[in-house]
Amino acid sequence: MTSRDSIRTDALPSGGSAEDQLDPLMLAERWMRDGRQVAMATVIETWGSAPRPVGSHLVIDADGNFTGSVSGGCVEGAVIAEAADVIASGAPKMLEFGVADETAWRVGLSCGGRIQVYLERVG
């Protein structure tokens, strides 16, 4: 179920709290209900060998708590840092990470791929 050449199917989200903990969209909804401010990052495009497929989510709250992933852990730190801005301003951002630029090298994708991540505030 992980190949991009085949139908992507979600793991079935249930009402169970253990699964909701692991499902970024379910957790984001719960955070919203709890009155927390939330930003959602989505992998929009990938080039080369990117660790997470298009459509993957990372959700972040105003305190920097997060769940999900947009890479194998390589660029999450940078996305979380940007999330504070997006939560404050409400303006979405397009982020790009790859081996080509210096920022990317610092927070780099070890696999050598490139990814574009859309970051927006929920609410």
Binding site: S14, L25, E120, V122
Partner: peptide, 16 residues
């Protein structure tokens, strides 16, 4: 994004 959309999306996912 509107939080209601997130709620509707999750409801759809739960409801298969």
């Amino acid at each position: 994004m509107d939080p209601n959309l997130l709620t509707s999306l999750n409801a759809a996912r739960r409801g298969r």
